[in-house]
Design a protein around this nucleic acid. Structure first.
Length: 174
DNA sequence: CCCTGATTCGC
DNA sequence: GCGAATCAGG
């Protein structure tokens, strides 16, 4: 489709009325919004109530044209971080301490499981408090939940138990 | 992701 | 001159 005098006139009209390039292109038909914009610039009637043009762009270096179509080296795939989500709820009940109380921020010891239970903003907030390796954050059961959140189905057998134990004992630095 | 105009440059 | 590709924003 060529830019006949009529089409150019229509373009000027619509452009002056504030229609967007894509809208003008759609109305004229047979042209894309890029064609409209290009024509607008060539006609020298750019500017207007330009919604988006805060600052002057320095200009682009150079752009490889599609004709040459040299295949650029593919960017390396981004490895997924896959950080285990921090547990917000705990299915297990907090352990009762020898003192008869639950583990709170004040009574929690290094050797106790630090799995949060309840709403931290509430006074009823406790920790699991079960026996845990001093270097580990959680007891074995909660370590499994924390470090294997998407475990579909618990495997059975000594081999699986050994694997779970190993995983639960692993150290994590944050 | 949708949209906007702006710019470059092979054709 | 044309406009696709691309850019820089909203």
């Amino acid at each position: 489709m060529a830019w006949t005098d009529e089409r150019v006139e229509e373009l000027k009209k619509l452009w002056s009325e504030g229609l967007s390039a894509s809208q003008i292109a759609k109305q004229l038909g047979g042209v894309t919004r890029n064609a409209v914009i290009g024509k607008v610039h060539r006609l020298g009637l750019s500017g207007r109530a330009t919604p988006s043009r805060p600052a002057r762009r320095p200009a682009k270096p150079s752009r490889p044209r599609t004709t040459t179509a040299s295949i650029e080296p593919v960017r390396a795939a981004r490895p997924a971080p896959s950080v285990p989500a921090a547990p917000l709820t705990a299915p297990m009940e907090p352990a009762v301490l020898p003192s008869g109380e639950f583990a709170t921020v004040l009574t929690l010891k290094d050797s106790m499981c630090k799995w949060p239970i309840g709403d931290p903003s509430q006074s009823s907030f406790r920790f699991c408090g079960r026996k845990a390796d001093p270097s580990a954050a959680y007891c074995d059961a909660h370590a499994n939940m924390a470090y294997q959140p998407s475990q579909k189905r618990r495997r059975t057998g000594e081999a699986a138990a050994a694997l779970n134990s190993i995983t639960a004992t692993r150290r994590y630095n944050f």
